[in-house]
Amino acid sequence: EFTQISGYVNAFGSQRGSVLTVKVENDEGWTLVEEDFDRADYGSDPEFVAEVSSYLKRNGGIKDLTKVL
């Protein structure tokens, strides 16, 4: 089950073990991109978060400006 990723309007994530599946949706709710990120592939949590965040930004993730990150 996908849940909204904090700080984004149209990005959602689903966690299974160490694998986080993220997706970005358009205004109609269609999935634009979907990608798996395995936490085990990264040396640290900040590196993992930075990679996921960068992916979302590159692929149309819209920041939720009503929330302070």
Rank of each mutant, 00 (worst) to 15 (best):
E1M: 11
E1S: 13
E1V: 12
E1G: 14
F2R: 08
F2D: 04
F2W: 14
F2L: 06
F2P: 04
T3V: 12
T3M: 12
T3Q: 11
T3N: 08
Q4N: 09
Q4D: 04
Q4L: 15
Q4M: 11
I5E: 03
I5D: 03
I5L: 10
I5Y: 07
I5P: 05
I5H: 06
S6Y: 13
S6C: 15
S6D: 12
S6F: 09
S6Q: 11
S6G: 09
S6E: 13
G7S: 04
G7V: 04
G7P: 07
G7D: 04
G7H: 06
G7R: 03
Y8M: 05
Y8D: 03
Y8V: 04
Y8R: 06
Y8I: 05
V9C: 13
V9G: 04
V9N: 06
V9F: 07
V9S: 08
V9T: 11
N10C: 15
N10T: 05
N10W: 05
N10R: 08
N10M: 03
N10Y: 06
N10E: 02
N10I: 05
N10A: 03
A11Q: 01
A11I: 03
A11M: 02
A11C: 15
A11L: 02
A11E: 03
A11G: 03
F12Y: 11
F12K: 06
F12N: 03
F12Q: 02
G13T: 08
G13R: 06
G13P: 02
G13S: 12
S14H: 08
S14P: 02
S14K: 14
S14Q: 11
Q15R: 13
Q15M: 14
Q15S: 09
R16V: 09
R16Y: 07
R16A: 07
R16Q: 08
G17N: 04
G17M: 03
G17P: 01
G17W: 04
G17Y: 03
S18Y: 04
S18T: 11
S18D: 05
S18I: 02
S18M: 07
V19H: 03
V19W: 03
L20T: 04
L20Y: 09
L20N: 00
L20F: 09
L20G: 00
T21S: 07
T21H: 11
T21Q: 02
T21M: 04
T21A: 03
V22K: 00
V22Q: 00
V22A: 00
V22H: 01
V22G: 00
V22S: 00
V22Y: 00
K23C: 09
K23P: 01
K23T: 07
K23Q: 05
V24N: 01
V24R: 00
V24G: 00
V24W: 03
E25I: 15
E25M: 14
N26G: 07
N26P: 02
N26I: 06
N26E: 02
N26Y: 05
N26F: 05
D27N: 12
D27A: 14
D27K: 13
E28A: 08
E28Q: 13
E28D: 11
G29E: 02
G29P: 03
G29D: 03
G29M: 02
G29H: 05
W30G: 10
W30Q: 14
T31G: 06
T31D: 02
T31Y: 05
T31C: 10
L32M: 13
L32D: 03
L32H: 06
L32Q: 06
L32P: 04
L32S: 07
L32A: 05
L32T: 08
L32R: 04
V33S: 12
V33I: 09
V33P: 03
E34A: 10
E34R: 10
E34G: 03
E35T: 12
E35D: 07
E35K: 15
E35W: 13
E35V: 14
E35P: 01
E35C: 15
D36V: 12
D36K: 12
D36N: 13
D36L: 09
D36T: 14
D36G: 05
D36R: 12
F37T: 00
F37H: 00
F37N: 00
F37G: 01
F37I: 03
D38M: 02
D38P: 01
D38R: 03
R39I: 04
R39C: 07
R39F: 04
A40H: 09
A40I: 07
A40D: 09
A40K: 13
A40V: 08
A40F: 08
A40C: 15
A40Q: 07
D41Y: 07
Y42W: 06
Y42E: 00
Y42G: 02
Y42I: 00
Y42S: 00
Y42H: 02
Y42D: 01
Y42A: 01
G43C: 13
G43I: 08
G43L: 09
G43V: 08
G43A: 11
G43P: 09
S44C: 06
S44I: 01
S44R: 01
S44Q: 03
S44H: 02
D45I: 08
D45N: 06
D45P: 03
P46I: 15
P46C: 15
P46A: 14
P46Y: 14
P46D: 14
E47V: 03
E47M: 06
E47K: 03
E47H: 05
E47Y: 02
F48M: 05
F48R: 00
F48L: 03
V49L: 14
V49Q: 12
V49M: 13
A50Q: 10
A50P: 00
A50K: 11
A50S: 09
A50F: 09
E51P: 00
E51R: 08
E51L: 07
E51S: 12
E51M: 12
E51F: 10
E51D: 11
E51I: 12
V52F: 02
V52C: 06
S53G: 08
S53Y: 11
S53I: 15
S53A: 12
S53K: 13
S54A: 13
S54P: 00
S54K: 12
S54C: 13
Y55L: 02
Y55I: 02
Y55T: 00
Y55S: 01
Y55E: 01
Y55V: 00
L56A: 00
L56K: 01
L56P: 02
L56T: 00
L56C: 06
K57I: 10
K57Q: 13
K57L: 11
R58G: 07
R58N: 13
R58Q: 09
R58W: 08
N59D: 00
N59H: 13
N59F: 09
N59T: 03
N59Q: 06
N59K: 05
G60W: 08
G60C: 08
G60M: 05
G60A: 05
G60S: 03
G60E: 02
G60V: 02
G61K: 04
G61S: 06
G61E: 02
G61D: 01
I62Y: 08
I62G: 03
K63R: 11
K63W: 11
K63Q: 12
K63S: 10
K63P: 12
K63G: 06
K63L: 14
K63M: 13
D64F: 07
D64V: 07
D64C: 14
L65W: 12
L65I: 12
L65C: 15
L65H: 12
T66P: 09
T66C: 15
T66Y: 12
T66G: 11
T66E: 15
T66F: 10
K67H: 14
K67S: 13
K67T: 14
K67C: 15
K67F: 15
K67A: 14
V68N: 11
L69N: 14
L69H: 15
L69P: 15
L69C: 15
L69G: 14
L69I: 15
L69M: 09
